[in-house]
Amino acid sequence: MTRVLKYVFYDILRTRFILFYTAFLLVCTFALFQFDSDYGKIVLSLMNIVLMVVPLIAVVFTTIHLYNSYEFMELMLAQPIHRNIVFLSEYMGVALSLCMAYLIGIGLPFLLFGGIAYSATLLSTGIFLTLVFVSLAFLSAVLTRDKAKAIGIALLFWFYFSLIYDGLLLWVVYSFSDYPLEKVTLALIAFNPIDLARIILLLQLDISALMGYTGAFYKDFFGSHVGLLFSAGILTIWVIAPIALATRIFARKDL
């Protein structure tokens, strides 16, 4: 596996996109450190990047990369190598390089300016979101042969989770506003990795004091060990389920 992975890495690094991505994150974070010295506010501003940009970059980069390495995969598959090895090497290659870019881009400034403790949640949720959306992009890539369609599906995933889902959630809250909804919404949030990441991040900041009773309920839950396990577990499922499904489909796919 490492042999294939090596060439996937080589291929990704050669396109320089990952370097641009790292530089972009670095510039954003450094700039925020220049404007503000309050770690909480920096984390809050970076939260928007994490919730919007990270998933978007993950889906777009992944699908484009996958289609660009179609030849490579074809070549590998005619060799005595298991299909899953080829596919999962691609996944590891993409996911690891995006995660590295993210860790360096966001983590390095915190390391330099201090406040690495503040950034722990930010870094871990960002890593999780990267992995989740790389998984979803792999799934969308195996669902169709057409590059444009695959990017379309991947963007739809992104659009759905960052926008449409929240609209539906608001509609549910509106329709059942006479009932106590805390537990129900907690379950609903688990169905959207972006929402889950956002809530976890908000609760880390003292700004969560503005979230009233609902916020207090969530804070109680996510502050507990059960809540921590719950959120980590749910996010892990979000990483594993799409890529597992994609691997299954890919194992039977005609090339």
Partner: peptide, 30 residues
């Protein structure tokens, strides 16, 4: 597939690789 040598109709290879690298890679993989 160890037993098969395959020459495709249209050879599709990682476009940015050098020929030497391609052969090195194939040897490395097997």
């Amino acid at each position: 597939r160890e037993k098969i040598g395959y020459m495709p109709q249209i050879g599709r290879y990682p476009e940015n690789m050098r020929i030497g690298q391609l052969f090195d890679m194939m040897k490395n993989i097997r």
